[in-house]
């Protein structure tokens, strides 16, 4: 029984990882081996040259810097603004509370794809087209983040707030000094999900960015598949490079990713 379970697990893991190994293998092959027949998983000679090649052939460094700027800004803004709004919804009673919360829910129900067209028109009017600001600003905060942070703040016991108020803490200090540290697990979960989303985002950056020096990695890579049709080794090396940061951040934060996953499935 246990052996059968282990076998299923092994097959599932191999199925998940095999395409990555094939990509990695391709990125390390020489020109003559790329179309070798029969194909070889482990290259006879490891060729690191493809990595230097792709780095020099396209503005890979610029893509990396742009994607890092976009991702770091997106994570910072989403955490900051979601926790401000989530705090207000969880810890205050005010007149417009219900309608404003419904507005957040409405925003959650509107898919990005539906509104990109008027958003692009708006970004043009604001002279933010072809800029990283134009990529980040419209989706700097998402409704789901506000929702998550509201739950995290609502779970903090009343006594914490009372004690802080007795000590004379202002609402801003109550939020930043007292309560925000207590929501750290939720913040970490929100951070890893926002990171993965922003790093891999494609459609909106594709619409906004026009000049190659402003491209993010995903946009640059997608155009590379057209440019280097004859040199898939470069494309593969570029794809591996763009995946590395996600992999590293994920391994560091796997715990928080899983917590978010399981929270989402049980509510």
């Amino acid at each position: 029984m246990t052996a059968a379970r282990r076998l299923v697990l092994l097959i599932a893991s191999v199925a998940a990882v095999a395409p990555f190994l094939w990509l990695l293998s391709t990125s390390l092959k020489g020109a003559e081996e790329l179309f070798a027949y029969p194909p070889r998983l482990i290259p006879s000679t490891i060729v690191w040259e493809n990595y230097r090649g792709v780095w020099n052939a396209i503005p890979m460094a610029a893509y990396f810097i742009n994607t890092t700027i976009v991702t770091v800004t997106a994570v910072t803004l989403n955490l900051l603004l979601s926790s401000l709004a989530g705090f207000a919804f969880a810890r205050f009673r005010f007149r417009a509370q219900r309608p404003l919360f419904y507005a957040v829910i409405a925003a959650i129900l509107i898919p990005k794809e539906v509104i990109i067209l008027p958003l692009y028109a708006m970004v043009l009017r604001m002279h933010l087209a072809d800029s990283l600001t134009g990529v980040v600003l419209p989706f700097a905060v998402d409704g789901l983040g506000i929702f998550l942070m509201r739950q995290a703040f609502a779970a903090i016991p009343r006594e914490v707030e009372d004690a802080a108020r007795v000590d004379g803490a202002s609402p801003l200090r109550l939020w930043w000094d007292v309560m925000l540290p207590m929501t750290r697990p939720t913040l970490a979960t929100l951070a890893i999900f926002t990171f993965i989303g922003a790093w891999g985002d494609f459609l909106w950056p594709l619409v906004v960015l026009k000049s190659p020096e402003h491209y993010t990695l995903q946009v640059g890579l997608s155009f590379m598949t057209g440019t280097f049709v004859d040199n898939f080794r470069y494309v593969a090396a570029g794809a591996v490079l763009s995946l590395l940061p996600v992999l590293i951040v994920f391994m560091l934060m796997q715990k928080h990713f899983e917590r978010g996953l399981f929270a989402g499935s049980t509510h």
Partner: peptide
């Protein structure tokens, strides 16, 4: 990222 998956 989906682009990487697509390339693969």
């Amino acid at each position: 990222p989906v682009v990487v998956v697509g390339i693969m």
